[in-house]
């Protein structure tokens, strides 16, 4: 059980929720399964997977888009309410001592913030070039821009992938709509790391509901992922 410290709208349909009381706040690229039912109710039944936007000590911050019942319920939660969550789950990103290119699209931007922040902390003299794509309204631009040695390029309404200069680094991280990640992987001449999405029931690797096909056979997004090598996922 965690307690909600803050749950605020940061753009239309996009919310940022900070919770406290998490025993393990996880690493960049991991996620939590958030309970969206009241304790004695079985509807909505399943927990919702939401990535770590940022975390420290016993607090975790999520950034989420309202798309259906579960996220609508999350958006209506108030400061002081309790939130039942399971996690941290999944493998998360590995940080490398290299100049990196980070490409996010839509709500897929959320898990890339902790990635960029931790990378800046660990490898301060390395360069980070962040490309963010939005459909209509920007969010989190200020947060990314405040990171040291980090250049932020963004696009509203078009294809941010058209703006990427792959000579700016030696490694690409990307998260966003599948067609965008596919395009990034295709354009990228360097190692590309992707964070995937799938519908989940258990979130811990037991139900095989979130399986995706990879070049190495079936993989569970919740347990073996959500982070994979682009070459592993987009092989066809």
């Amino acid at each position: 059980m965690a307690v909600i410290l803050e749950n605020k709208k940061i753009a239309s349909g996009i919310f940022m929720m900070k919770v406290q009381g998490v025993s393990d706040c996880g690493k960049e690229g991991q996620f939590f399964m958030l309970s969206v039912n009241s304790p004695l109710s079985t509807d909505p039944l399943l927990k919702r997977p939401i990535s770590i936007y940022d975390s420290e000590g016993d607090t975790v911050t999520f950034v989420y888009r309202v798309v259906g019942r579960g996220t609508e319920i999350l958006a209506n939660m108030k400061e002081g309410d309790t939130l039942d969550l399971l996690g941290p789950l999944g493998n998360g990103f590995t940080l490398y001592d290299e100049d990196v290119i980070i490409i996010g699209g839509g709500i897929g931007i959320a898990p890339l913030y902790k990635l960029a922040r931790e990378h800046a902390l660990k490898f301060p003299d390395k360069k980070r070039t962040v490309y963010l794509g939005f459909t209509d309204e920007t969010f989190l631009l200020g947060e990314f821009s405040a990171l040291s040695n980090t250049e932020v390029v963004y696009d509203v309404g078009g294809f941010v992938t058209d703006k990427v200069d792959f000579s700016k680094g030696t490694l690409v991280y990307t998260c966003g709509p599948e067609p965008m990640m596919r395009a990034v992987h295709k354009l990228s001449p360097i190692k590309t790391i992707v964070s995937t999405e799938s519908r989940m029931a258990c979130g811990v690797g037991a139900c095989l509901g979130c399986t995706i096909k990879t070049i190495n056979g079936n993989r569970r997004v919740c347990k073996d992922g959500p982070v994979f090598l682009g070459d592993e996922v987009f092989y066809e």
């Binding site: 509807d43 039944l45 399943l46 519908r199 029931a201 139900c207 095989l208 509901g209």
Partner: peptide, 11 residues
């Protein structure tokens, strides 16, 4: 493979 319904699950 997974789809939620009212207090139910389809797999």
């Amino acid at each position: 493979r997974i789809y939620e319904s009212a207090s139910g699950l389809m797999n």
